[in-house]
């Protein structure tokens, strides 16, 4: 038993070291890192709000449109950042595998923790602003809301990890993945709710796990909104399957890395 604790302590130390290192590379050099972290969601929210005002559409549910887009853009961003930050995780951590206590999974965990904390702090900042603006009052179920946001980034990360493995065998997969992401943005509910869709479309989009996460997120965030669409177990099962595939795949790539001279 003490062996397990010892191993966990070592892993925690390695993850912590990676978090500090990544923090340093992202935020240590210039203030630009903070700037992007804060303003990236804003550009998404404002762009969507502009488009909606141009086509004269209001918020799909009974909340302010900016707050509605906020609850779409943030989980989407967690998902898509999860995907993109994993795309190079295997090559970039390969040289550090020299240290026997370092595993690729440590880098994966460290990146998830750092990215989630960053976006989470940015979220609080936004909510404070929206609160004083009078648009936002409070979250219906804060704990569930945070949990679903975590699921968003973990789901994105395991999806990205599978992509990172596939990339080593088929380098062109990355262009397919970025195409897939672009399509996913439009069908994952960043700017609509599933219950407003025609049932034929809804039946097809049911297979998109990201849409489930966003619907779930809005249902636990807003008092007046309860989606009839989402099934919590579906994205969770998808996430577990992808996570298994990604981690198993990463094991298999080790000899491949040697061939590629990484």
């Amino acid at each position: 038993m003490s062996e397990i604790f010892k191993a966990l302590a070592v892993q925690a130390r390695v993850v912590y070291a990676f978090i500090l290192r990544d923090m340093h590379t992202r935020f240590g050099r210039s203030r630009l890192g903070y700037f992007w972290a804060v303003f990236e969601p804003l550009t998404g929210i404002l762009a969507l709000a502009l488009v909606f005002s141009m086509i004269d559409r209001g918020s799909p549910i009974n909340v302010d449109i900016h707050l509605f887009f906020f609850t779409g853009i943030i989980p989407w961003q967690l998902f898509s950042r999860g995907v993109s930050m994993m795309s190079n995780v295997i090559e970039s951590s390969a040289p550090l595998l020299t240290y026997p206590q370092v595993k690729v999974v440590d880098v994966v965990i460290a990146r998830i923790i750092l990215e989630f904390s960053t976006i989470f702090i940015v979220c609080i900042l936004y909510l404070v602003v929206l609160y004083f603006w009078g648009i936002f009052d409070r979250v219906e179920n804060l704990l569930m809301s945070i949990t679903v946001l975590m699921l968003c980034i973990i789901f994105g990360s395991v999806f990205g990890l599978v992509g990172a493995v596939i990339k080593l065998y088929f380098p062109s997969y990355m262009s397919f993945q970025s195409l897939l992401l672009r399509v996913l943005f439009f069908i994952s509910g960043a700017f609509f709710v599933a219950d407003s869709l025609p049932s034929a479309v809804k039946d097809i989009l049911w297979y998109n796990p990201v849409l489930h996460l966003l619907e779930w997120q809005r249902s636990v965030f807003f008092y007046g909104f309860e989606s009839q669409f989402y099934e919590p177990m579906y994205p969770i099962v998808c996430m577990l399957c992808l996570g298994f595939l990604g981690l198993a795949g990463e094991r298999l790539t080790r000899s491949k890395l040697r061939q590629l001279g990484i």
Binding site: R13, V14, Y16, L20, R21, P95, L97, Y99
Partner: peptide
Amino acid sequence: GGGFNNNLSGEENLRFVCRI
């Protein structure tokens, strides 16, 4: 070979190794 990140300074690499 590996062990160091070339984009980080010697001192930053050193900090990382100390931590692990």
